[in-house]
Design a protein around this nucleic acid. Structure first.
Lengths: 216, 216
DNA sequence: AAAACTATATATAATCT
DNA sequence: TAGATTATATATAGTTT
């Protein structure tokens, strides 16, 4: 493309690879944005470039909230067979849609102002339920991630210091933190997860109020 | 773009919106693929188009495994401060890299064939550990999703049958499954989650063998 | 060495079939 | 009406500043 001929192989020169990467990343993001805007679809883009030694992430849209929402939707679609289960968010959305449908039907009948007002309040309430469902799921996800981090975080990352004077070959020398492995086992990992999970759910209660009573 | 002038607004005509969507989606995926190939970066694309009434998902790459890996990486990057924690997969990858580094140093020394063979076996073992770590994390993720489905799955989706003969307006009529709401409350939801979580983790044990002993 | 430039390859909106 | 065509707008590889 452009002036030269494009061969779809890894660009060997690191410098021009980087240049190309930056240019194309910009365009790709622009295109993703345009697709979203023009066609009313949600588009998410993950770009993970392996810098040394860690990975650098870029997403579009940059907003984590939107990314999480997309991941949630993706998961609920990829893991469930249609009609066999249902996600909370979808439940409320569908309910709201149904109410809107019913409402438009009822508009043929006379609706007094009092009822109309009630109705508006009700729709607001449903909106807020949808938000709460989202927040709660997100909270639990974040919590779960945190749990895993905690469980794995027991580990100190392998030290980067290397002894240069290894002279005699011994395969077991290749592991220089042998003791640390003792701490890893299924049981420990599981029970830590269980404990943390219960602890967080039961005690730590910033879970939003989540009652399903509609007293209209 | 193309022949006409592009205004970055929603395309009003549903037909041309759909056409544009299909064309641009194809190009976007192509570009994402090219970026990955040319620049050695991982690129994932989620496209969620709201057909009626459900959402249709498309990802690039289409392989779920790769998508999950990306999501996992994204989460471990977005939720953790650098160096404070560590993901299991990364742990093994780093370890393997370190071993490879050490190996190349040791190549200066004489390595007999026996040791070389051991070494190869060891690298294979590490590869398999990496896979197991991946599988385990994936299993737990899937399990968690399943839990949530179970908890929410108590619900039967709102029936699509609608009574056409509603003549008198009554706001509470808009909810035609009022009894079902009784079952939803924080406590029930939580304890169901907890029970299921424990049950699955403790009893249901298709968790892959996950010992960290290296007996070389 | 990064940013601007430019010649060409692509993408695509409108059109045609 | 979905698919091919075409006239333009963009993207971008290589070049220059």
């Amino acid at each position: 493309m452009g002036r030269g001929i494009l061969s779809l192989k890894l660009i060997p020169n690191p410098k021009s690879r980087r240049t190309t990467f930056l240019k194309r990343k910009k365009s790709l993001i622009k295109k993703a944005y345009e697709l979203s805007t023009l066609c009313d679809v949600q588009t998410c883009l993950f770009i993970a470039s392996d810098c040394d030694p860690s990975t650098h992430f870029e997403t579009w849209p940059p907003n984590h909230h939107q990314i999480h929402q997309m991941i949630r939707s993706y998961k609920s679609h990829s893991f469930t067979k249609p009609n066999s289960s249902y996600d909370l968010n979808r439940f409320f959305s569908d309910r709201k849609n149904k109410i809107l449908t019913n409402t438009s039907k009822l508009l043929h009948n006379v609706v007094d102002h009092q009822s109309e007002h009630q109705l508006m309040e009700l729709l607001d309430a449903l909106d807020s339920k949808i938000r709460v469902a989202n927040d709660m799921i997100e909270f639990m996800e974040a919590d779960y991630d945190h749990l895993i981090d905690q469980a794995i975080g027991m580990d100190t990352p392998p030290s980067q210091t290397e002894d240069e004077e290894t002279t005699q070959f011994n395969v077991s020398d290749l592991f220089n933190e042998p003791d640390e492995f003792e701490e890893y086992n299924v049981e420990g990992f599981q029970s830590l997860l269980e404990d943390k999970f219960l602890e967080t759910l039961v005690q730590n209660n910033p879970i939003p109020d989540f009652d399903f009573d509609f007293d209209y």
